[in-house]
Design a protein around this nucleic acid. Sequence first.
RNA 1: GCCCCCGUAGCUCAGUUGGAUAGAGCACCGGCCUCCGAAGCCGGGAGCGUGAGUUCGAGUCUCGCCGGGGGCGCCA
Length: 557
Amino acid sequence: MQIIDTLVTLVSEALDSAQTSGSLPTAGDVEIKIERPKLAEHGDFSTSLPLALARSTRMAPLQIAEAIANAVPEHFMVGNVAHAAPGFVNFTLSTSWLQSQVNVVRNAGDEFGSVETGKGQSVQVEFVSVNPTGPLHVGHARGAVIGSSLANVLDAAGYDVQREYYVNDAGNQMRVFYDTVYSRYMQAAGHDEPLPDPAYPGEYLQELASDLLNDLGDSSVSKEKSEAIAVLAPESLKRTLKDIRNVLSSLGVEYDQWFHESELLSSGRFDEVLNFLEDSDLVVERDGAKWFAATKLGLEEDIVVIRSGEGGPTYFGTDIAYHHEKFMERKFDRVINVWGADHHGHVARMHALLQAFGLDPDRLTIILNQIVNFSNEGESLKFSKRNNVMVTVEELIEEVGSDACRFTFLSRSPESHMEFDLSLAKTQSSENPVYYVQYGHARLASILRTAAERKIDFDTADLSLLTHARELELIRKIIELPAVIERAAERLEPHHLPHYAMDLARSLQRFYEDCRVVSLEEGELEISRARLQLVEAAKYALHRTLNLMGMTSPERM
RNA sequence: GCCCCCGUAGCUCAGUUGGAUAGAGCACCGGCCUCCGAAGCCGGGAGCGUGAGUUCGAGUCUCGCCGGGGGCGCCA
């Protein structure tokens, strides 16, 4: 962030000159950290460097603070530098600089908030990636929301981002799925075909099968089972994926690519990568199966990659090829996988795998989001169709709406074991933080509409008129956005967005309360213009934030 | 048995990689609409599971204990 970088430079210069002038003894290299004080009277930024230097310089921290504060060079961004006990140097931004930021924001427009920390780096975010065997379960919504917003944030931080859904269209689960579709298809056509064992339960497959019968006709009924499946399977997959895509889309989730597991097998990549591992002496045969020799890389157990018996690859087996493809073929600098916490046992294996490829394991980050407990009126919900409780993401969106849903999931960090209270998320809708934030946006829009109706032109304005505490508070909050985005991207924590959104909304509501924007009073046209520019800047910041969260920015509510 | 995550206000959650007097929403109580939206604003109470340790300084780091969730498949 630019402000902090500037302050680091100023402190560094102050340190040098204090040491040169002899007011401070020289000390070894220290890292200058700039923080944000919690209390307003401590300024906008501070550093506790004096406390860190106390030991090596054998001086009282407060004295060091004073020496540094006195040596900080003048800078137009900084209005005041102070030292404070027990050993802080506090910086307050200058009013004139804050005022000037209104136009910086307005000029950036919809792009305001973007940073370049990820410039030149490609990153893939893979999320949801649920087996295409039916509708998305509510348990998958959290990962979808986190993954999509994280991708948005990384994009805003300058990364070249690819959003990907990994379609597990090979393997055991799908065979069971197709076998069940076949049985349901035959049953729909009036034949007494038993369900396979195991089979996929649920009405979804019955509906799917009867749709297939209607749309494709009964020509597959008389075929051999394998031939019938050859016809039904691709169509079942296509339709199920389409349902998944539509539901995700209604949740504000879009992908750049849907990558099919089956491609890894048909392209020969799987065999190729397996050969590579064999050549690296990392594959062993045992009990009729092939294993990835993870124990040679420090893990506790080897992992099966090719089953005994019919010899198909395991999920982990194709994942080897998949990640090889991500790094070696598509050459992503970083890959982020968003998984449910129940996959945590898989994490160490993936990192071992990168090691086997000779790659830095840090290039792969796996975000595990903990399970969500849904409740209603304080009562925990057990999902089952028999209880007639909501089970799919589609139903969840119908119940609480996409915006409220996203905001709720986003405001918790992924590792928290969150509770999602449906009654809270929907019935108290007017008191919901979701609507508080959106109301702020609608209100800003409303002010601008009023200004337009009254034909107030505010292309130019005297921003030095913005001196009210609420005006400056709002400007300070607006210009935090780049730092929020930078932090969220760096730490892969999209949950900072909703909290920032709340803060920003509060600042603008307080501003609105105390500062009349569009005034009819004589002689207040100039201040109206300046405030309208501020309103416009606030609207850009709030809209950007809502946008990154995948939420709508209503002009009216 | 081993591994991962969590424990902060009555409830749901933040807490800027160890900094100053720990925050927000909901719920509760009391105020505020004569021109831009009261889905709002202002004021009010209460909290870091527990015991040690590291440090100038711990909600944050280390270890133990208590409590909750998840994982240890030739499933994905």
